[in-house]
Structures are given as C-alpha cells and as structure tokens.
Design a protein around this nucleic acid. Structure first.
Lengths: 138, 138
DNA sequence: ACTTGACTTAGACATTGTCCATTGTAGGAT
DNA sequence: ATCCTACAATGGACAATGTCTAAGTCAAGT
C-alpha cells in the first residue's frame, strides 16, 4: 500500500508519528491536497500535530523528490505524491477537480532553440483546463 | 504605445485616473508583474491609489479577457497583458525571470481522448523551467 | 450643472506560509 | 533496558497575499 512510506524508510528518513501520518495522508494516486487539507486530515489521526510540522514535512518531502508541488490552483500550493511517474494535470475550471494525465509527445522538444533565450531548460509543466463531467451536467 | 488603453476605451470601459494608471503600468511585452508590483508602480504615478483598487482593477481586466493571470510563481499571481497573442512561459527557477515563448505544435492535440476523463478541455498552459543565462553565469 | 450609479478608499479581516525558541523524542551507544 | 544527543515537533508570532465593507467621490449622461 504505502509505497511512499517504504521508500522513505529505505532512505533512512527518521520516522516519527507526525511524519508517518503526513506520508499516509498523501499516499495514493490522483491525490492533490493543499497543505491545509493535509493538516486537516492529519489532525484526524493525530490531533496534536501542528501546522508548522505539516509544512516542514511537506517541504522535506519535496526536497527529497518524493512529492511534487503543483500550482494548478492559483491560491494554495498542492502536493502530489505521484513523483516517480512523470505526468501533467487536467483541472476543472469550475470545481477545481484534478486528474493526472499523460499527453503524447515530449513538450520539451517543442521549444525551439530560438525560443530559449539562452536558458538551460530542464523541465516542463503542462496544465490542461476545462470542465469536468459533473460541472458540465449541472 | 498603449494598445491596452485603446482597447479598453473602445469597449466603453469607464475611465478613471486609477484605472488608466494600472493599465499603463501593465502595458508592454514580457511584462509579468505581481499585484503588489503593479501597486508599487501605480503609486509612483498616483500616490493615493489604494491596494483594493489595484486588485479590483486587475480582476476586471482578467474578466474582460484583456489580461491573463499566470501561476508561474508559486507565491503571488502574476498578470500578463499579452492576452491577444497565445503564448507560454519560460521561467528561471533561481531568479524567477519570465519570458514569453512560442513552442511549435499544439499541446491541446497531444492529449488523447482516453486521457480526458470526460472533461471538455478548452485551454492549456505550458510552463518551461530552467536556468537563465545570468544565473548560469553566477 | 445636476444626478446617479459606478468607482475608490482605508483599513479590518481572511488565508496561506515562515520563523524561532522551547520542549520532546527516535534511534544509536552503553 | 537505559541514557544521550541530534534532530524533530510545538505553538505562537509574524509576513505575504488577497478579500470585503461602509462611506465618500467622481465620470458621464441629461
């Protein structure tokens, strides 16, 4: 189940109740929680966990490369534990629902040298926007 | 010069000193200011302009489709007046510098139906990340 | 020049995120 | 099993960004 926890243990990450709970909350696919949502769920399992710890832990998971920050929402950052399979996002403009998607082709190759302005380009993030079936029905 | 102001007048937008100043500050290419930066520059020309007015005006420009919100930065929203020429962004991961870029191909066509989950997909936003020449030299 | 509805203002408030000094604890050493 | 110690957690202040409201002001039509 918890691939994330396994990987973290394997990397010698010091395990505490708080860190375990944060990792458990984040584990899964199509999971894109904000820091506050992670905190709310973590509190459900470990009521005394503090906001600062959740932020610290999320920051560490990002540094370790086990979780990605995504900016699909224009308000809070969201955290995506699916860091080991490259993917992009499809976002509902109305309700904010997010799905992981896998476009064909490699967008990195689509940026000609003449459009790189001397940058060393290392990464690309693609966000598709639209309306989800639920919102379309309403 | 001010295409943006021209267009706004043409649409019957009620013109006030504050709105004119905000539009002037935003006008140009490769302009990607945060709301606070817009406010700071607007204050330079019209010291009594309030923060709320800048936020309101930016929100209206976005609603009118004359300015785009971009989420390249993970902190504040940025406002891009280059709304009438489709483009994407190239961001320096270190200093945050932003350039408008025009990749070849159409990323919308690269998302197969099987990856659309019933969404009606209307838009795509591509953000390239890398290191700009300045930061690479340092 | 009026009148009126839309615009602006200042500042309180809300949300999201960061920092720091103190207290607690995981995990190795004894 | 217990003790140490470096690392982690806490909570509360602070910072940055954004939203709202009540009251005053003004652009534009008549």
């Amino acid at each position: 189940m918890s691939d994330l926890l396994e990987r973290l243990r394997g990397r010698g990450w010091r395990m505490t109740a708080q860190r375990r709970v944060v990792a458990e909350v984040l584990d899964g696919e199509h999971v894109h929680l904000t820091a506050d949502e992670v905190h709310a769920r973590a509190v459900g399992r470990l009521p005394e966990i503090s906001r600062a710890t959740v932020y610290n832990t999320l920051g560490e998971l990002v540094s370790l490369g086990e979780v990605l920050e995504v900016a699909t929402d224009k308000r809070a950052k969201r955290y995506d534990p699916n860091a080991h399979q490259p993917h992009h996002h499809l976002v509902c403009a109305q309700c904010g629902a997010i799905r992981d998607v896998h476009p064909i082709g490699n967008p990195l190759a689509d940026l000609p040298d003449s459009e790189r302005f001397g940058f060393t380009v290392s990464d690309v993030e693609v966000t598709y926007r639209g309306t989800c079936p639920n919102c379309a029905a309403a």
